[in-house]
Computed example of a mutant assay.
Amino acid sequence: MSGEDFPRRNGISSPCVDICVIHPEARLCTGCLRSIDEIAGWGRMSEEERQAIMADLPARGPLKASRKGGRRGRMARGQ
């Protein structure tokens, strides 16, 4: 997926899919696969910096399969 394949939010390219859950070990968002630092600095980055990060996101993809279901999953497991 190229950077142009990602939606734009407020005129800024973004991989956000509104699933904002940080994976406890990987420390990446399970929705967009960005780190907390990447998410926090996204609006201050140049378009070139954002495109470089978005080009790297597919390599982080296996993390999505390891999601445990967020709050609903924890409640089902009694945590």
Rank of each mutant, 00 (worst) to 15 (best):
S66V: 07
R44A: 04
D37V: 10
L63P: 03
R67Q: 07
M1A: 13
E4Q: 14
P24E: 14
M54W: 00
G70P: 01
R60P: 03
G3N: 14
A59E: 03
A76W: 00
G41R: 11
I19V: 14
G11I: 11
A52G: 05
M1V: 13
G73A: 04
Q51H: 13
E47L: 05
L57V: 04
R74G: 00
I36D: 08
T30W: 06
E38D: 11
I36V: 15
G69A: 02
G11Y: 11
R67E: 06
D18F: 10
R72S: 02
K64V: 07
E4H: 11
S35Y: 07
P24Q: 14
E48M: 09
M45H: 05
R74I: 00
A40L: 10
R8K: 15
S14R: 03
R72C: 00
S35V: 08
E25G: 12
E25C: 11
R74Q: 03
G31H: 10
A52L: 08
I53W: 01
G3Q: 12
I39F: 06
R72W: 01
I12D: 03
E4R: 14
R50K: 06
P62T: 07
R8L: 09
F6H: 12
D18T: 08
R77M: 03
A26V: 12
A40P: 02
G3P: 12
P24R: 13
P7F: 08
G78F: 00
A59W: 01
R34V: 06
I53K: 01
T30D: 14
N10L: 08
C16G: 05
I22V: 14
K64S: 04
E25L: 15
R8F: 11
E25V: 15
E48I: 10
R8I: 05
S35C: 06
D56H: 09
I22D: 01
